[in-house]
Design a protein around this nucleic acid. Structure first.
Lengths: 220, 220
DNA sequence: TAATATGCCAAACACGCGTTTGAAACGAGT
DNA sequence: ACTCGTTTCAAACGCGTGTTTGGCATATTA
């Protein structure tokens, strides 16, 4: 019973925090949605802030379980790894397989870090970003400095996060009919990987026109 | 006297709203910073919400005045236009010439649109985005559909906005010393334009290898 | 100077919030 | 059946918030 109630509160809190933010969400609303008494939050979590921290952690774990990273062996080409990396992030961001309020909450935490942020970065974001940098490194020229690799990594991340963090403006800029027609998750994965691979391809060529990574030289 | 007080309130409100958001900013804090009485907000603006709307509008106008768009004639090459477009946005985002809380406030409004959003989009963002799409169109192959141009525009915007919206996480991912060393505004402009032009270059080539836009074929 | 309007202020008001309280309901062990 | 620890609940508390108020100072006009 106890675990049941805490889990009910955690998901109710996660959904509401994700939708309205910490400050705009009241303990009373959370308890109403979780169908428990107002004092349950303080009884089980101490106070609202500690509930929030737990809700963020819970969201991260649920998200990682819901859409895990694919497994790669040594022979997997980096182009495929990049595509699947982007696909994983986009799916985590946008696809609502059992709803995707989790990333919405985590994105909030990215934009305005609170107490819950540090663990999230250490446990999840840093290793995730390092993984991406490894893939980018494979697709880069050997003489590129680390900060160049990192900037490219940022360019990739930013494109993906954009559609979650600024989704309201995306809709206003292109219209909701266009959005449904051309901005399905699959379309976004295609565009972002194509755009990124093309950039890396041309940047390699500009650096060392003779030594291209791929034999067929097609960036797609 | 009257205009003086309203302006003092507007900038104080803008700075605080930008830093802490609408809900976390109290009317008392605003008045304290503006060195006016608490009731001044209600006297001059009606209520907190209408003050917020005015503060957002004020921020937009200040920003556009602070960093205006460059003037281009018909002969200006699109590569240069793109670079200057990126430079303008990065300067608006990051450079603190008389501080840059304005874009921070506008970015908040992008991420969570309120009453103040509609005018901002109509007056500023839509034309700005259309301008970008025009530049991208010049750098694209003739047969690319509109939604492809739009997605490329999104990729550019997202890279720029990223460093303002997710700046806290950027610092956590790469470290503050790296940030100061390699992520100055100038470095970001260089990277984003290089990355984008490289992508467009390779995407054109992949489409029609024989007809390259530029004679020298260097994406930089 | 007197009269009126405008801007300014400290104090108070009404309300929603997170949290606490004390008792009631429940369940497990004896 | 009784006890004791745990869980649930309605009610209340204390505080911070946006807003209002009534009076005071200052400027404007006749």
């Amino acid at each position: 019973m106890k675990d049941d109630v805490t889990q009910q509160i955690l998901t109710a809190a996660g959904e509401l925090f994700a939708e309205h933010g910490y400050r705009e969400t009241t303990v009373r609303d959370i308890c109403k949605r979780a169908k428990v008494n107002v004092s349950a939050v303080n009884y089980y979590f101490g106070d609202k802030e500690r509930l929030y921290v737990q809700a963020v952690k819970n969201a991260r774990l649920q998200m990682e379980r819901r859409v895990p990273l694919p497994e790669w062996d040594a022979a997997t080409p980096p182009e495929q790894k990049l595509r699947q990396f982007v696909e994983t992030m986009i799916r985590r961001m946008l696809i609502s397989e059992g709803s995707s309020w989790q990333t919405r909450l985590l994105t909030r935490e990215i934009m305005e870090p609170t107490r819950a942020c540090e663990e999230m970065v250490q446990e999840s974001f840093l290793p995730f970003f390092q993984l991406l940098l490894g893939i980018v490194r494979e697709l880069s020229a050997a003489n590129w400095p680390d900060h160049k690799i990192e900037k490219i990594g940022m360019s990739i991340i930013s494109q993906i996060v954009h559609y979650r963090a600024q989704d309201r403006i995306v809709e206003l800029l292109i219209g909701s009919n266009q959005l449904q027609q051309h901005y399905r998750p699959h379309d976004l994965v295609n565009h972002i990987t194509e755009f990124t691979l093309a950039a890396l391809h041309a940047m390699r060529q500009a650096d060392q026109p003779s030594f291209d990574r791929t034999a067929s030289s097609s960036p797609n």
